[in-house]
Simulated scan of single mutants.
Amino acid sequence: MAERVGIVLFGLLTLAACAPAPAPPVPAGAAAPTVSGPLPLPARAKVSPVRLTIPAIGLDQAGLVPLALGAAGELQAPVRFSDVGWYEGGPVPGDPGPAVLAAHVDSRSGPAPFFRLRDLRSGDEVRVARSDGADVVFRVDSVQRYPKNEFPTQAVYGPAPGSALRLITCGGSFDTAKRSYRDNVVVYASQRWD
């Protein structure tokens, strides 16, 4: 579904937190691997994304917050509606695999960071600055909308060639009884090499 996705205007509804998108299953009873031979090298400082810039929708957001999984294995949404979060259990944007960033679409007080995410088009540029000084550039491949009960967990979190980025927010119509949007909007992007 590459066509423009619709979202009900925030002013018409009483809004609540966007229900989080499902995250990859955590293996039950997974044990830490045993290490034999030389001692491992000291861990390097953890790298994290620190700024997200999407010129096509006028987004320039600093101070990305870490996101974790909830008790049911779902990705937790940012606590504050003004934040963009990064799933710290996955790759850092620019490293191999799909990095996941999530934010709210809106709140009672107006648009949130990913309000215009649905307006992105194939080829639009997405930049992620990292704490190690790297500035990683991605190109949008597609924008899709899925009912929350049909969220494509494998396509979002599963293996991807090279460095990939997934941007997730809520979309579609608003369910006033559940105080949540019925769908998720997912932007798929891949690293651009100039």
Rank of each mutant, 00 (worst) to 15 (best):
82 S>H: 08
82 S>K: 12
83 D>A: 14
84 V>W: 01
84 V>F: 03
84 V>T: 09
85 G>T: 05
85 G>Y: 00
88 E>K: 13
88 E>Q: 14
89 G>K: 11
89 G>Q: 11
90 G>S: 06
91 P>L: 05
92 V>K: 01
93 P>R: 06
94 G>L: 01
96 P>D: 09
96 P>C: 04
98 P>I: 03
103 A>G: 06
104 H>R: 04
105 V>I: 14
106 D>P: 09
106 D>K: 10
106 D>N: 15
107 S>A: 14
108 R>N: 15
108 R>M: 10
109 S>Q: 14
109 S>M: 14
110 G>D: 08
110 G>H: 12
111 P>Y: 04
111 P>K: 08
111 P>G: 07
111 P>C: 06
112 A>W: 02
113 P>H: 04
114 F>L: 09
115 F>D: 10
116 R>P: 04
118 R>S: 14
118 R>H: 12
118 R>Y: 06
118 R>V: 13
118 R>T: 13
120 L>N: 05
121 R>E: 14
121 R>H: 14
121 R>D: 10
122 S>A: 15
122 S>P: 12
124 D>E: 11
124 D>M: 11
127 R>T: 15
127 R>Y: 13
128 V>K: 01
128 V>S: 05
129 A>V: 08
130 R>T: 14
130 R>C: 13
131 S>A: 15
132 D>C: 11
133 G>I: 09
134 A>G: 12
135 D>K: 15
136 V>F: 04
137 V>Q: 11
138 F>K: 00
139 R>Y: 05
139 R>A: 15
140 V>T: 07
141 D>C: 04
141 D>T: 08
142 S>R: 13
143 V>K: 00
143 V>Y: 00
143 V>S: 01
145 R>P: 00
146 Y>F: 15
146 Y>N: 06
148 K>H: 08
149 N>T: 11
149 N>L: 12
149 N>R: 13
149 N>W: 09
150 E>M: 09
151 F>I: 05
152 P>G: 10
152 P>Q: 10
152 P>K: 08
152 P>E: 09
153 T>A: 09
155 A>F: 04
155 A>I: 03
155 A>C: 04
156 V>Q: 00
156 V>S: 01
157 Y>D: 05
157 Y>A: 06
158 G>C: 08
159 P>S: 07
160 A>S: 12
160 A>L: 05
161 P>Y: 03
161 P>L: 09
163 S>Q: 07
163 S>H: 07
164 A>H: 04
166 R>W: 05
167 L>D: 00
